[in-house]
Amino acid sequence: MKKVTKKLIAAMALVLICAVCFAYGCASDPGDSGKTQTPAGNNATAAPATSGTSDDNGYVFKHGDVTVIMNAPAADIIAALGTPRSYYEEPSCAFEGMDKTYSYGSFDVTTYTEGGADYISGVVLWDDSVETPEGLYIGAKAADVTKAYGVDAAGKTNVSVTRGKSNIIILLKDDTVTSIQYLAIY
């Protein structure tokens, strides 16, 4: 009878352990943070601008020789952009590290932290002294949006275009572009 009891206990333990492992994410390891987003695996950094946008990198922003790629490791890009006019950091809402904002006057670059390293999370253009590689700038017309990105912006207050792991949000007022914002898609 003792053997039967032991077998029962062993069977119960085995069933429970299997259930635990299979049922809830041996594959997923939420840990304390539970953050699920991962960088897009972009290995491009502050590569010199050689051509227009690349499908692999999605929509990029270029400033001089510096290419800012969404979800790319931020360190080299930020270094290449030079000293920002101002810098702000705040604890990340995504739970890990700090969200950082580097302001360069005409544009801001923001980063997030993943696995101890910073990655590009966005770019905001503030004035017409900078433009996207596709030629869009603050103050451009709705027709320019169509020309640059192939979307109809006439009469709209905002349009959004996506390529790879990047998104550009374009705001308009009276058919004139008022804001251009790059966002990384996690």
Binding site: Y87, Y88, S103, V124, W126, L171
Partner: peptide
């Protein structure tokens, strides 16, 4: 020290 501008 500084507060970044809020994007519209």
């Amino acid at each position: 020290d500084t507060i970044p501008k809020a994007a519209p």
